[in-house]
């Protein structure tokens, strides 16, 4: 039971971090490194100025 709770809260923390990442990606030009993965269309919903 405790393991499930820890797992669920870790997953929520990871999801929250990734959401933050999506906000950054939607409001910047590109990836830093020399490879740009294909951006999904849904990324637009994270733009500051929609």
């Amino acid at each position: 039971m405790e393991k499930t709770t820890i797992s669920k809260s870790s997953a929520k923390a990871v999801a929250s971090t990734l959401e933050r990442m999506l906000h950054i990606e939607a409001n910047t030009s590109s990836c830093i490194l020399l490879h740009q993965p294909k951006a999904p269309k849904e990324l637009k919903q994270f733009r500051r100025d929609k």
Binding site: L18, M21, L33
Partner: peptide
């Protein structure tokens, strides 16, 4: 995409 971008970042 977010995971990919995180590691590339």
């Amino acid at each position: 995409y977010a995971v990919h971008s995180f590691f590339l970042g």
